[in-house]
């Protein structure tokens, strides 16, 4: 699985992740403090300036935002019909701004920096006995490691259906897929313990 991080050395790339997340949170609150559309229009303009100068090819820069932008536009159009013109405009500007800056934070932060930050944020909860902070990195690794395995297993089950002339139904695909995947859990857990991966 490819992450959405983009190599680069701009301002956002150099900012520490915690600063970026705090800025993003502040932006999220700040955008709702004003109802002046002229002021809010600065948001998407600035956001677009930052986003489109990150070094992504234009096609990909647009492609990444498409699904989220589409729901923003559709819901704004819906809002335009049932609320007021003004409300719809404000919403469009705010959410587009947030989307652009959020996508920028994602693109300028490596996955390992995120994992380190989340692990650090989880540390205080360790004392409450809720999580082991180091387990988070391990869990992330396991998911990324096993998604391709699940997909190839899905392919194998599909082929087995075909070979036996059984019609493809979601149920007959999903139940064996889950059983076969979860059955590996015991062996994987034994391997984690044997390798002492949780003894930090």
């Amino acid at each position: 699985m490819k992450s959405l991080h983009v190599e680069g050395n701009g301002l956002f790339h150099r900012l520490p992740i915690r600063a970026k997340l705090l800025l993003l949170a502040a932006l999220g609150i700040g955008l709702f403090l004003t109802r002046d559309p002229r002021l809010l229009a600065l948001g998407p303009a600035l956001g677009a300036l930052v986003w489109f100068t990150l070094g992504l090819p234009l096609r990909e820069a647009l492609g990444r935002l498409r699904p989220v932008f589409l729901t923003i536009v559709i819901v704004a159009a819906f809002s335009f019909l049932v609320n007021s013109k003004e409300e719809a405009l404000l919403q469009l500007l705010r959410l587009t701004t947030l989307m652009l800056f959020a996508a920028t934070v994602t693109a300028t932060t490596t996955v390992s920096a995120f994992i380190e930050e989340i692990t650090a944020l989880a540390r205080p909860f360790e004392k409450l006995g809720l999580v082991k902070a180091d387990d988070i990195g391990l869990a992330f690794g396991l998911v990324v490691r096993f998604v391709p395995e699940v997909l190839s297993r899905y392919e194998a089950i599909r082929e087995a259906h075909k070979a036996r002339g059984i019609k493809l139904r979601p149920l007959t695909l999903i139940a064996p897929l889950i059983i076969l995947t979860l059955r590996e859990a015991d062996q994987i857990a034994a391997a984690i313990d044997a390798r002492g991966l949780r003894r930090h």
Binding site: L142, Q187, I192
Partner: peptide
């Protein structure tokens, strides 16, 4: 089954 003991991608 060594596939199950390689934990990271």
């Amino acid at each position: 089954n060594p596939a199950n003991q390689i934990i990271m991608p």
